[in-house]
């Protein structure tokens, strides 16, 4: 359960941002969670709602967008957008040329995308 320490870092950014833009309160938080970030969205949600109490985002809603994994194939150079990585027939090989020399270019991201605030 490392989601709690990640949420703690998230709130450091939220509080810093709120100060910068003069927010009185944060009403919505939207984050991007990569499928290969190692973060479980549901655990993140639970951690968020327990951490938010008493902060500037006390009543905030949390929106999570799970971002799919993207690979680049070194065989044919194409970008590969994948399906659900947890499905049993998920393949790491390139669907265009079959090469196994594929490199992860996104899907590990953990990003605070935007806030909705009241001023």
């Amino acid at each position: 359960m490392h989601e709690l320490s990640i949420v703690a870092d998230l709130f450091t950014i939220i509080e810093e941002q709120s100060r910068q833009v003069g927010a009185k309160r944060v009403t919505k938080v939207r984050v991007l969670i990569g499928e290969l970030s190692g973060v479980v969205p549901e655990l993140f949600r639970t951690a968020f709602h327990s951490y938010k109490k008493g902060t500037i985002a006390d009543k905030a809603r949390l929106e999570i967008k799970v971002t799919r994994v993207k690979f680049k194939c070194h065989g044919c150079g194409q970008e590969i957008k994948t399906g659900d990585i947890s499905s049993p027939d998920f393949s790491y090989a390139c669907p265009f040329c079959g090469s196994k020399e594929v490199e992860l270019i996104s899907g590990r991201d953990l990003c605070l995308e935007k806030l909705e605030i009241e001023t």
Binding site: I6, D9, L10, T12, I13, Q17, V21, A23, K24, T27, V31, D109, L110, C111, L112, E113, K114, L115, E116, I117, E118, T119
Partner: peptide, 18 residues
């Protein structure tokens, strides 16, 4: 009156660790 607005942040949550 309360005014709502959206703020685009796009910051890496693990940025401080990195």
């Amino acid at each position: 009156e309360k005014r709502k607005k959206e703020v685009l942040v796009l910051e890496d949550i693990l940025g401080s660790n990195k």
